[in-house]
Design a protein around this nucleic acid. Structure first.
Lengths: 203, 203
DNA sequence: GTCTATAGGTGGATAGAC
DNA sequence: GTCTATCCACCTATAGAC
């Protein structure tokens, strides 16, 4: 389809398609998949709906590509945190901060939002939702294992279970914090959970 | 159609209005507020959309009354649990079970679902969402205080913060468990969190 | 690649007969 | 209380000109 064939590979993501994804992403994160329309994106970008359909034939395709981009971007951030020379606890704190930036932008996690609307979404998007959570849990499981091994993290049970607890708590805390327009609610719950995992001096 | 007009006042909630609320509740919990229409309810009940508008003038009014009924019903359940002669830990287990029944019915918490769509909802519904969370947090705060006092619960920090952490975790765990159609995911996260709050024999 | 124009469907909501 | 009939705004999507 020769999309953006002239854009030098050095300067990416400034084309129309990327702008559409940017606006769509914010709309899904704030209003949900069933809460925005092509007309919303078009008016914001100053183009027509037909233009959007040229770049993304259907809304389902737009949603799917949105999720793929989001998971890729998130995965890169996780890889970066994972590669750093920091303790497992510090890595978890960085992880929490990723979510914190989203909630401070008055958004919900893209994937948490779509998880709520799961039953109404096309299967191609449903698959991507689970993939996002899988990526998160795998990364967290590894960090949890390393942390307990090195005594920088303290918790009972399987690392994979702790990973799922972390994701659940952060997603839920975002959901509620947004209803109160109060990011501090997210911070408090995240901090309390991490505190439970911090090795105690008296132990 | 003379629907149940003869039912004695002893047998409540069998009228058309209650049936509409029942169907609407399930639809919101599975598909979200923006994921269902009057046509969905009407076809399921075998009536026309006009009938729905007779009982609930607007969708916003239907949504508001749905939330009020839900919070009332939930509040009754909490009062019942709170009045029982059981330990604070057992009360928390009963609380978790309330959510567990919802997820086992393949539903999301009505309020968690609406919290996701918060930005698209009429203010009259937004108010009710926060009220639901407030009711939950107040009840949990009381239970947490009593439990720590009686040494049947163990946790650091303010009881109100622990209450918020509990709600966040349960809501998030429901959100994710539903995407995997796996209630066990909810159970595992809930159990792990309660385990952290269980007094240890070696302490 | 973006436009105008429009198709075909569904959304919430109302008027008026019964 | 429930129906038929209808309104109009909005939805996703397409055809074809430029």
């Amino acid at each position: 389809m020769l999309r953006m064939s002239r854009v030098p590979s050095i300067a990416p993501q400034t084309g129309t398609a990327a702008q559409i994804l940017d606006v769509a992403e914010r709309l899904v994160q704030t209003r949900g998949y069933n809460g925005f329309s092509y007309a919303d994106i078009a008016s914001e970008l100053g183009v027509t709906k037909a233009t959007l359909h040229y770049h993304f034939r259907t809304k389902a395709e737009l949603g799917g590509r949105l999720m793929v981009r989001y998971t890729e971007s998130f995965g890169s951030a996780l890889a970066s945190i994972g590669a750093a020379e920091s303790s497992a606890l510090e890595k978890l704190q960085s992880y929490v901060q990723l979510y914190g930036e989203v909630i401070r932008d008055e958004r919900m996690c893209l994937c948490g939002m779509l998880a709520a609307e799961y039953a109404t979404l096309p299967p191609s998007i449903q698959v991507e939702i689970r993939r996002f959570f899988d990526v998160n849990e795998q990364w967290l499981t590894t960090v949890a294992e390393q942390g307990r091994e090195a005594n920088t993290l303290r918790f009972d049970g399987a690392p994979a279970e702790m990973a799922r607890l972390l994701v659940s708590t952060l997603e839920g805390a975002m959901l509620i914090a947004r209803s109160y327009d109060d990011p501090a609610r997210f911070d408090a719950s995240a901090r309390r959970l991490l505190d439970e995992m911090t090795p105690r001096a008296d132990a």
